[in-house]
């Protein structure tokens, strides 16, 4: 049985200017100890997907229209708030993109680190502090005994992200959700943080959902990848298949637009146009207006995610028809 099974999740935002279908019917699963990457451009619904699972979608304007997310037998989308609170921060933790804004600037790091322990475990403050200290050492903060009493502004960006990771892992979660944790960091610090996530994953045997828009980051870290476009999954495959035999035109276009894979000085490949306006109903395939292979079929038919091989599903109608 998978650790997490999401079925037909739809999260819409009801605003004055219309209904934004940020996540529009996605299903996926995650096994214990597995690392799943979610890739897509800004606005594709990656973050809203995981925020929905964690109950972090502001309501209103957000509303979860349908779907279930079974985490070890509990439906995260339809369970009493107390149950969700006992899971969130304990068995599922999350780290965010910007460690400057997601740590509380008024509280010492020590207080923020022990908060999840004090909430979820019967533990004294002194014992919690001891655990926090060993956790900080584990994520590679030198001189942790002194620095644990610092405020967030006394740390650099990479160090703050380490503190966030320590905070997320201190309750030994079974699932870590990382929402673009390295996007705001330098490449050298990004390499350190990715290395740290790999090490902690190996030691704790936890599952990871890693959100990013950088295919390069995904390639070294993830076992399987979901590619999202306009609130839907367009392709999902294990990491090697996705990189070496991508099927969906959007996945292929994303890969072709990475500068390092293109000859120097030549015009870079770009995807023409812009992502669609998700507040308007989309007829046919959402990617069709930007797709070089779009045919009449794509503008009328409804693309569904269809398996084409073991663990490889994709939603292009022309690929399914055997035309591409």
């Amino acid at each position: 049985m998978p650790l997490l099974k999401v079925t037909d999740l739809r999260t819409h935002f009801h605003t004055r200017s219309g209904v934004y279908r940020a996540v529009d019917g996605i299903s996926f699963h995650l096994d214990r100890g597995e690392t799943l990457g979610i890739v897509g451009e800004s606005g594709s619904g990656k973050s809203v997907t995981v925020h929905s699972l964690m109950g972090l979608v502001p309501r209103p304007p957000g509303r979860i229209e349908s779907g279930s997310a079974i985490f070890d037998g509990v439906d995260l989308l339809n369970c009493p708030p107390a149950t969700l609170r006992s899971i969130r921060g304990k068995r599922i933790s999350m780290i965010f993109q910007d460690p400057m804004t997601s740590l509380n600037p008024y509280l010492r790091v020590s207080e923020q680190l022990i908060e999840p322990l004090l909430i979820h475990e019967k533990i004294t403050k002194a014992d919690a502090l001891k655990r926090a200290l060993s956790m900080l050492e584990e994520v590679g903060i030198n001189d942790a005994a002194k620095r644990i009493h610092y405020y967030p502004h006394e740390f650099s960006g990479g160090m703050r992200q380490r503190v966030m990771i320590a905070m997320a892992l201190i309750t030994k979660p079974e699932l870590l959700i990382a929402d673009e944790p390295t996007t705001a960091l330098d490449v050298t610090v990004q390499a350190q943080i990715l290395d740290l996530i790999k090490k902690m994953r190996r030691e704790a045997g936890m599952a990871v959902i890693f959100i990013t828009h950088d295919l390069g980051v995904v390639s070294g870290l993830c076992d399987r990848v979901l590619v999202m476009y306009a609130g839907r999954i367009v392709e999902t495959a294990d990491i090697r298949t996705l990189f070496y035999q991508p099927k969906h035109p959007y996945t292929r276009a994303l890969q072709r637009s990475i500068p390092s894979t293109q000859p120097k000085g030549a015009e870079l490949f770009t995807i023409p146009g812009m992502p669609p306006d998700i507040s308007k109903p989309i007829v046919g395939c959402a990617f069709a207006p930007r797709c070089e292979h779009a045919a009449d079929l794509c503008r009328s038919g409804v693309p569904e995610l269809v398996p084409i091989a073991n663990d490889h599903e994709q939603a292009c109608l022309r690929v399914q028809a055997g035309e591409l």
Partner: peptide, 16 residues
Amino acid sequence: RALVSAIPLPNPDAER
């Protein structure tokens, strides 16, 4: 050299 080696490669086998 360290900067160049920190660039993630979009190729799972080479990257690993």
